[in-house]
């Protein structure tokens, strides 16, 4: 199967695109090479919008699951558009400050009627492990997306939510910090004001 055929399959929800995407990422073929590149873009975007390093994000073990979740719910094509937009912003603002980059991200991505809600959902996925149902007006205009309901990606996704790390706590019910640890102030991890891209 060449790249174009594979791409067509991915964009058809009936084909379980999420499994196809995951299989392709792990495979050796032309499609796998191509998709791994897309997944790299997905991680680069995630680093930018979460302010966690690629090391931290990969450490959650959830990257591929979130990548697959987005493809599963809204299809591959829109994700690719989102990531291409992101890459072009990065290329355009290479060497410029975060402020400039953030302005462009807002105008062209988060403020984009079609892409904005998906971008926000990717942020929420990383922080909570939940896919949140898209706004109704999005579904009316760009839907339908039958799998678009609020759900937790998996038990591990919940446990790996970045929210908890962000506040120096732990997900309720997991990764407990130990007897009596609560008597001390939380250790809130430091982060740079400029997220490192790539």
């Amino acid at each position: 199967m060449n790249k174009t055929e594979f791409y067509a399959k991915l964009s058809t929800p009936a084909n379980d695109p999420a499994s196809l995407a995951l299989a392709a990422i792990q495979g050796d073929g032309e499609a796998g090479t191509y998709l791994r590149g897309v997944y790299d873009q997905f991680l680069a975007f995630s680093v930018e919008v979460t302010a966690f390093s690629r090391f931290d994000l990969e450490g959650t073990g959830q990257g591929e699951a979130y990548f697959a979740t987005v493809i599963q719910v809204v299809g591959y094509e829109i994700l690719e558009q989102l990531l291409d937009t992101f890459t072009s912003i990065i290329n355009q603002t290479g060497g410029e400050s975060t402020l400039v980059r953030n302005d462009l991200l807002r105008r062209r991505l988060f403020g984009n009627e079609r892409l904005g809600p998906i971008a926000r959902n990717i942020v929420k996925l990383w922080f909570t492990g939940n896919w949140y149902q898209l706004p109704r007006n999005w579904s009316e205009k760009f839907g339908p997306a039958p799998k678009d309901v609020t759900f937790t990606v998996s038990a591990n996704a919940y446990v790996e939510g970045l929210l908890w790390t962000t506040i120096g706590a732990h997900p309720a019910g997991a990764k407990a910090q130990g007897y009596g640890s609560w008597a001390n102030p939380p250790r809130i991890p430091e982060f740079g004001s400029d997220a490192v891209v790539r």
Binding site: E48, V49, T50, A51, N102, R120, V123, L163, I167, A195
Partner: peptide, 20 residues
């Protein structure tokens, strides 16, 4: 994220400020 339009560092700062 949805109403505050925060992402990246600003979101992390916002969460610390709002949740902890």
């Amino acid at each position: 994220v949805d109403d505050g339009n925060l992402f990246g560092s600003q979101l992390r700062r916002g969460l610390v400020d709002r949740v902890s």
